[in-house]
Every structure is written in structure tokens, then in C-alpha cells.
Amino acid sequence: MLSKEICIHGDILEAKEKTTVVTTSLEVIKEKVFDDLGRAFYDTARAFATGPKLRKDGRAPYLHILYWLGTSNEWALDLIEAVRKFPKHRSSVNTIMEKGYLEGFLNGERSELFAECIHYEPNTHVISVEDPKFVYYIRNIQWKKFVLQVGYKSFNFKSSYDYALSFAGCDRDVAEALFNKLEEEEVSVFYDKNEQHRILAENVEEYLGPIYRSEAQFVVVLLGPDYPKRVWTRFESEQFRDRFGDASVIPVWFDTAPTGLFDDTTKIGGFHFYRSGDFESQINEIVSTLVKKIAEERS
């Protein structure tokens, strides 16, 4: 009987005329192969999973893309289709695609590390694995262990957004500053201006309602003087009204709002924002606390 067998130790290199019995189990062989590949590819996988900077309390969009590649039956992944399949990560993954962060990262300072393993086509949003050995490696990663090794605290997320912002137009400067800072920390935030292209041609109430009712883990309400006067803020507040009882609404009280206007919200913890105070330091303090809050929820 002719057989061609591959031995991990290199004892069998070509076809033999006699059958050779290999007593080493397949699992041991696979583990040895994985360990050998780990020495070649762990640094690449870890560098991609962390993205430009490790945000241990963030949404980990780069890590999830690597996970989707590793659990896919294909060598290429359409990220547009992937976020449809995994809607909880739509916001964070769309952000790094649409703002060019993913392309810039792969072509940046560490491009040589990724060049022979991963290719991304920004025009089609398709990311592919180029090296068959790297494919084998990421398909056999023990993901729970890998997540901790990389430095993330969690790999499971309860909601599509960590925070949804509800505010009147006159307070958009505060909302946008919060959104930008939280986005830098890879915290997923629903901010209407960032989603305008998705809202187009949709029934706006049907689109926004579920976000404020349940798809955001927390709602941050900017309670400025115009908040009760606007149609859309009234609509949004109707959606999350019942959430005050389950500790998922966070008020931000503006000193410019009339005294007593929001007294019914003062029984829960929130923030004070002073228009006459230092804008940047107040934004940073709120963001820092919100990041700690979501990190505690995940852990």
C-alpha cells in the first residue's frame, strides 16, 4: 500500500512503499502546528486586534473583524454584510471603515507586519486573508483566552450602542463634543448627525424609537433650556421614559435651564454642565466617567 504521510518531526518526507503507523494523536499534532504558527503570527494577530491603540474598555472593532475572519468559511469578508449580520457592532465597525481608520491603520507605521497576511479594499469594504498559514492560525485561536491576552476586558456586548444622546439643537456643541471624545475611546454612541445617511428615506420614528427604548444600553439626556420645547426631544423622551426605573438614563443638567424644570430627574445620578465654565474640562470629566461606567457594566 502506497501512502504519503507528513510527520511533524520531519521523519516522513515522501511516499513510502510500506504503511507507517503514526501513534501521535491528531489533536497533539494540531496543537504543535498551532504553537509553531503562533510564534510566527501571534504578534500580527495581536497588533491587528488592538488597532492603533488598545482601548481595553472599548468596543474592540478590530478584534471583532479578526474574529469574524477567523470564524468565517471564506478567506474574504465583506464588512458591510458582516455588520448586517452582527448589528451590535454596526456603529463601531462602520466608524473605522467610513472614517478611513481601518485603511490608515493597515497602511500605517506597522504596514509591513500586515502586508503579507491581511489586505483591505476600501472601495468595496472587503477584507481578506492572504496567507493560508495565517488563515489556519486565526481559525484555531481560543478566542476567550486570546481576548484576555490581548488586553480587553470583555468580548460580549449587550446592546447595539453603549450610549444614545438625546438633546435639543441649541446644545449640539456639547453633544458633538461628547460623541467625538467617546468615539476616540471606541465607545459606541448613537448621535443623529453621524447617522443621517442611514436615516434618509426611513420612517424616522420607527428608526429612532427602538434605539432609545432598548438598543442603547444607556441614554444620556442633555437637559438644556430648550429640551422640553422641541418635537423630537419630546418624542425621544417618550421612548425612554420607562427606563428611568431601570437605571439606564443619565441626565446632564444645564445651568441655563430654568430652576425646577427638571426636578423629577434629580433623584438619579447625573452631571451638571455650566455654560459659563470651562467647556473642555467639563466634557473630559463627563466622558471619563461614562467610560468608567460602561467598563464596569462590561466587567
Rank of each mutant, 00 (worst) to 15 (best):
K4G: 15
I80F: 12
E109M: 10
R198D: 09
E74W: 08
V174E: 07
H64K: 14
F134Q: 10
E296L: 11
V22A: 04
E112Y: 08
R275A: 00
R243E: 07
A49M: 04
V204L: 14
D173T: 01
R139A: 08
W232G: 02
P225M: 11
I211C: 08
A40D: 15
V189I: 13
G10K: 01
R84H: 11
D173G: 01
E81C: 12
F179K: 04
K267A: 10
V126F: 03
T44L: 06
A164W: 08
A257F: 02
K145C: 12
L165V: 04
Y274V: 00
E297L: 06
K32Y: 03
F134R: 06
H272T: 00
S111L: 00
G70S: 03
D226V: 09
P251R: 03
L54S: 02
E238R: 15
I211H: 03
I199S: 07
G151A: 00
E5W: 00
Y42R: 11
R198C: 05
G270M: 09
L54F: 01
G10F: 01
D263W: 00
T44R: 06
G224W: 05
S154D: 13
K99H: 13
Q239D: 14
L182C: 05
D162H: 06
H89T: 04
S154K: 11
D264S: 11
D57Q: 00
N156L: 13
R90H: 05
V21I: 13
G51Q: 03
M97G: 04
T266Y: 03
E74G: 12
G108Q: 01
E186L: 06
A45I: 01
P52Q: 03
G270R: 03
V135K: 14
V28T: 03
Q196N: 07
Y212K: 06
E297Y: 09
Y120K: 05
V83F: 07
V83D: 10
W143V: 03
I268Q: 05
L165H: 10
Y227M: 06
L2W: 09
V147C: 12
L79G: 09
N194Y: 11
K16S: 11
R139Q: 13
T23G: 14
Y42N: 14
N123V: 08
Y101D: 14
Y42M: 13
K133R: 15
L63D: 07
T24W: 02
Q217K: 12
L79Y: 08
A49K: 04
G38S: 08
G277I: 00
L77Q: 01
I141D: 05
G104N: 10
K56Q: 09
V189D: 15
N203Y: 12
K18P: 02
Q239F: 10
W68G: 08
L13C: 09
K181V: 14
Y67T: 07
G169T: 00
T71C: 07
R59V: 03
S154H: 10
R139N: 14
V129W: 01
P87D: 02
A175V: 04
D78H: 12
N194G: 06
Q239M: 15
G209P: 02
K133G: 15
G51S: 03
E5M: 04
I138S: 02
D278I: 07
S111I: 00
H197M: 14
D246H: 07
Y163A: 01
R55C: 11
S276D: 13
L69Q: 04
I127M: 09
A76D: 10
G169S: 08
K193R: 11
K16T: 11
E176K: 15
G224N: 05
K293D: 15
S276W: 00
